[in-house]
Design a binder for these strands. Structure first.
Length: 267
DNA sequence: ATGGCTGTGAAACACAGA
């Protein structure tokens, strides 16, 4: 089973790219971020025509998240984080799909540092960490996938020294990510590729993609109930080179079959 | 170190992204 995450940077402007990639890769579950469209403009007809059921949480111009399931209807379990009713950003949606709880997230960018946007990022991270703790306690397989807007280590940045005061690489944000992982999550890509340079984003500026001046900011966190199923992980880097590409590339993990554990001894 | 590019909403440029 293939689970993917893709920050599309505008689901309507990017629709040809999204459909082409869905057709090519045929993932079973897809988390999308940065829809940049209100709910009524989500292209559900085209996505259904491609063979996917979907739930989504959009808003005008910015943010927006969705979960797609091939031949299936994701069952929404949550929309938005806990702990701040005044936060109206569409950045988190969660569903039970194919016997997994999938949280799809778009963590705030946080630039410029310092400032209120950076503070909002750290607060959002705290609220995500609290929710992640709740999910860990629920005794179900969980994947938290999406655009975390953080490079966890120096290995995840083409030129770390240039990013030290950027909100994506500030020490506070890296620590927040490490604290989250410490609850017992597995960073799927890094787990399978401990020392490889892997990027999921390349800036539109300065020919970043051609120079491979990239960042690894799209992540999959797996809880202990699903981590044993992890078989492979990668980035569909070539998609970043397509016409009208997003600045992110689709990123995916492959899971083996469900491991049924026998809870009672048979006679 | 800076500015470079792109999508959206609106109808020119502002804003956000990372």
């Amino acid at each position: 089973m293939l689970v993917a995450t893709f920050n599309v940077n505008g689901v309507n402007g990017r629709l040809p790219v999204l459909l082409r990639w869905l057709e090519e890769r045929r993932p079973d579950i897809v988390c999308l971020q940065e829809l940049k469209a209100p709910d009524e403009k989500f292209p559900i007809k085209e996505i259904e025509k491609a063979g996917y059921g979907a739930i989504w949480h959009g808003q005008k111009s910015w943010n927006g998240v969705a979960i797609l399931a091939m031949g299936d209807a994701p069952e929404e379990t949550r929309r938005g984080l806990l702990g701040d009713k005044n936060d109206l950003h569409a950045r988190y949606i969660e569903a039970a799909v194919k016997e997994i709880v999938v949280g799809c997230l778009y963590l705030p960018n946080g630039n410029p540092y310092p400032g209120p946007k950076f503070d909002y990022k750290l607060k959002w991270f705290e609220r995500l960490t609290k929710l992640a703790n709740v999910l860990q306690a629920a005794d179900v397989p969980v994947i938290l996938a999406g655009d975390y807007n953080v490079m966890p280590t120096k290995l995840d940045v083409y030129k770390p020294e240039r990013w030290t005061d950027d909100a994506l690489f500030r020490i506070e944000v890296r620590e927040a990510y490490a604290n989250l992982v410490k609850q017992g999550w597995v960073d799927a890509i890094r787990h399978l590729h401990p020392s490889e340079r892997i990027y999921t984003f390349w800036d539109y500026f300065r020919n970043a993609y051609v120079r491979n001046a990239g960042l690894r900011i799209d992540h999959f966190l797996l809880n202990p109930l699903i981590a044993p199923r992890l078989k492979a992980a990668g980035v569909d880097k070539h998609v970043r080179g397509w016409e009208k590409a997003s600045d992110h590339a689709p990123t995916w993990i492959e899971l083996g079959p469900i491991k049924r554990t026998r809870t009672t001894k048979r006679a």
